[in-house]
């Protein structure tokens, strides 16, 4: 068995697969990789099944050492990854030797990077998933000194081709949305503001992204607590929007005015505070 040792933790580094299903009836969020297009690609590059847990690195990367040979791939945001001090590229399988040191530098584009490892990480599975989420798992993220096991079963892979990702994924501010169940509660002017303006990203984390535009009016809509899912955009009384992400609670009491497509959730997950987005309404 090999292990990855965290010499430093980075801003928020956790293990995430494609989510924990079947437990929302007990109030347990789905969790899972924020940008699942990138996490699936990371697994594909090392020939893992798409649902293997990968390491999700946010904005500031950790410093990692490996004690056994293996194969990794890094996808998603470009956080200037370096292996033993030399730059390496995203979207390519990279052989690792014992003692190798992986570091990250300046964020060049995107917010979240994914690292897959051949055969997957050895970490406890709780309720059918390895996704870290407190209180389902004891920890929400890794800290300095943590060790994470992996199968040291490296076999040579012939195809080391780089896979190009869609540029749009990182640069495009447009998010495709479906109308939400309460979209029609909004008057014409508000609908028009919503669909024709830029919204600025405020506070954001794995639970949700706050999006604001000062033109949006306050409101006093009342509704019964109802099911919400990742990608549901709620309208809060102040007029700010809350786009729910992977760790969001399963029910909510604010009007669900828009719903991000699966692709748009992945796209939003690569953006951070101060960046702007706009909505492109599509038929469901």
């Amino acid at each position: 068995m090999g292990k990855v040792i965290f010499q430093s933790s980075g801003l928020h580094t956790s293990l995430q697969d494609l989510g924990r299903y079947g437990f929302r009836k007990y109030g347990i969020p789905i969790s899972g990789a924020m940008d699942q297009e990138s996490s699936k690609l990371a697994n594909l590059l090392v020939k893992n099944p798409a649902d293997k847990a990968v390491m999700e690195v946010t904005q500031i990367g950790p410093e990692l050492t490996f004690d056994e040979p293996t194969l990794i791939a890094i996808t998603g945001a470009d956080l200037s990854p370096h292996l033993n001090g030399s730059p390496i590229t995203n979207n390519k399988a990279i052989p690792i030797r014992s003692g190798d040191i992986l570091t990250f530098g300046a964020p060049k584009r995107g917010l979240r990077t994914y690292m897959s490892i051949k055969g997957g990480f050895l970490y406890e599975t709780v309720m059918n998933s390895q996704s870290m989420f407190v209180p389902v798992t004891p920890k929400a993220k890794f800290t300095k000194g943590n060790q994470l096991g992996y199968q040291a079963n490296y076999q040579s892979i012939e195809n080391f081709a780089t896979i190009r990702t869609e540029e749009n994924h990182f640069e495009n501010p447009s998010l495709a949305v479906f109308p939400g169940p309460e979209f029609h509660w909004l008057d014409q002017t508000t609908q028009s503001t919503l669909l024709n303006s830029e919204f600025t990203i405020g506070t954001n984390n794995r639970m949700g992204y706050q999006l604001s535009n000062t033109e949006m009016p306050t409101n006093d809509f009342q509704m019964l607590t109802s099911p919400v899912i990742p990608g549901t955009i709620q309208l809060t009384p102040s007029g700010k929007l809350m786009a729910l992400m992977r760790d969001a609670q399963v029910t909510g009491g604010y009007p669900r005015i828009l719903q991000l497509t699966e692709k748009s959730i992945n796209r939003l997950a690569q953006k951070g505070s101060g960046q702007v987005v706009n909505f492109n309404l599509i038929d469901i």
Binding site: Y21, G22, R24, K25, L224, T225, S226, P227, I229, V250
Partner: peptide, 14 residues
């Protein structure tokens, strides 16, 4: 069906 859950008056089916 992958999963179902509900609130007071709504049933969600994935």
């Amino acid at each position: 069906i992958n999963e179902t859950y509900h609130s007071y008056h709504a049933l969600a089916i994935q």
